[in-house]
């Protein structure tokens, strides 16, 4: 499943960059984040609780930043496993940042999300809509924090 979003925030590109590469800052924007452990500058572990319909998924995820081209581009690879073992999520995401004006920055991200196990088969349509919902929520949080 590919999830693509492009949106703009009222903040300079450098600010956006500093924000998104910092797990401590970006972490709380993720809906349902329960815990975040920074392992090193490019690696962090998260526990995210997501409600997908009646399914409650608790994802233990490790994210590694694999590409960094400040302040324009980064790539992350995440692997998550549900605590109940209903499935695993492998996500590769690229984020591109384009400064449009001094205080406006366009952020586009493209995530290739691969869900395995029962989550993928049972909840294809639910996962899709949930992903969209979560993504919208994430963008909203991000904008709010950056534009504060």
């Amino acid at each position: 499943m590919i999830v693509e979003e492009t949106f703009t925030v009222n903040a300079p590109a450098q600010k956006v960059w500093d924000f998104i590469i910092n797990p401590e800052l970006i972490g709380p924007c993720v809906p349902g984040l329960e815990k975040i452990d920074v392992i090193d500058e490019n690696t962090y572990d998260t526990v995210v609780k997501v409600k997908v319909g009646f399914i409650k998924v608790k994802m233990n995820t490790r994210t590694v930043i694999t590409e960094k081209d400040p302040p324009h581009h980064m790539k992350t690879v995440s692997d998550g496993r549900d605590a109940l073992k209903a499935g695993e999520v492998h996500q590769e995401m690229t984020v591109d940042i384009k400064e449009q004006s001094e205080n406006t920055t366009e952020i586009s991200y493209k995530a290739d999300v691969r869900i395995t196990g029962k989550l993928a088969t049972f909840g294809e349509k639910i996962m899709r809509s949930t992903t969209k919902k979560l993504s919208d929520q994430f963008i909203k949080n991000l904008k709010q924090k950056l534009e504060e």
């Binding site: 691969r114 395995t116 993928a120 088969t121 294809e124």
Partner: peptide, 13 residues
């Protein structure tokens, strides 16, 4: 299938 994953492995789907 999506990325090799069968999306409808049941007689429901």
């Amino acid at each position: 299938t999506d990325q090799g994953k069968i999306l409808n492995p049941s007689f429901v789907d």
